[in-house]
């Protein structure tokens, strides 16, 4: 199988985000960047399919030079090669999807994997946009994959509100991975050493204009302290009233 995984680099989940001086971007000066956690499920899914059916796994990432680090980490988990689409412009989900789609359109991929979302801007959009741009079927938020290489199809289970939906897709297709799909492997020390000699091809990005523009970014208001209404059951009616009328959660 010819498998592709699109991987992204995002701020560490522990990062205390600061808004940059321009008020439109985050200050990246003291940020530790990591492989997008949902992409790890996508990588593991691709590696498992390769283990089962053979073939090759290629990682694709669009961004600045630092994106090579996430390709390298992905290669340390397994797989064969990387493609770094070099672009320094921030863009939006649309332009990112356009850049990826352009690089993938003649790839001959059987399946293109994504994490279901990147944990920086949380749009959950790029994977399905790429599918649309390439005219491929897609399944998002996938928690189970059964592939049938001979019949050229996959059956995926995806999360929907309150339950699961089972969908069948013909290959080639796009799948975005949700937590629970698998247990991503650790990059082993041998894998890390082997990754050093796996090829990463650098290509330039196709021109793509974003459709949206960030005009402002701000942090949420600081949390207010809690209120103690009482310490025994006499406080319950007031608690219920406030939850209903003020917090509007019940």
């Amino acid at each position: 199988m010819k498998l592709f995984v699109c991987v992204n680099q995002v701020p560490d989940t522990e990062t205390k985000v600061k808004v940059g001086q321009d008020g439109k971007t985050i200050d990246r000066s003291e940020i530790n960047l990591i492989l997008n956690p949902y992409d790890e499920f996508a990588i593991e899914a691709a590696l498992q399919l390769k283990d089962k059916f053979g073939g090759e796994v290629t990682y694709v990432s669009a961004g600045g030079d630092s994106h090579k680090e996430v390709i390298r980490k992905s290669l340390a988990m397994g797989g064969d090669k990387g493609i770094h689409i070099k672009t320094d412009s921030a863009g939006d989900s649309y332009s990112t999807a356009a850049i990826l789609a352009s690089a993938l359109k003649d790839s001959g991929a059987d399946i293109i994997f994504f994490g279901k979302q990147s944990i920086d801007y949380d749009d959950s959009a790029v994977g399905t946009m790429v599918a649309e741009m390439l005219g491929l079927p897609s399944a998002s938020v996938v928690v189970k994959i059964d592939a049938d290489e001979g019949a050229k199809k996959v059956i995926c289970e995806r999360e929907v509100e309150g339950g699961k939906e089972t969908v069948e897709l013909s290959l080639p297709c796009v799948i975005t991975a949700q937590k629970g799909l698998n247990e991503p492997r650790y990059p082993s020390l041998k894998g890390i050493m082997a990754a050093k000699s796996k090829p990463i091809q650098e290509i330039s990005a196709a021109p793509a204009e974003p459709l949206t523009e960030v005009i402002g970014m701000r942090k949420p208001a600081a949390k207010q302290g809690g209120r103690i209404l009482g310490t025994d059951k006499s406080a319950v009616p007031e608690l219920v009233r406030l939850l209903h009328e003020e917090a509007k959660v019940i």
Binding site: R72, Y186, L189
Partner: peptide, 12 residues
């Protein structure tokens, strides 16, 4: 980069 990856693998 490799040393960081090793550290991160063992940390996880």
């Amino acid at each position: 980069a490799e040393e960081k990856l090793v550290r991160d693998t063992v940390r996880d």
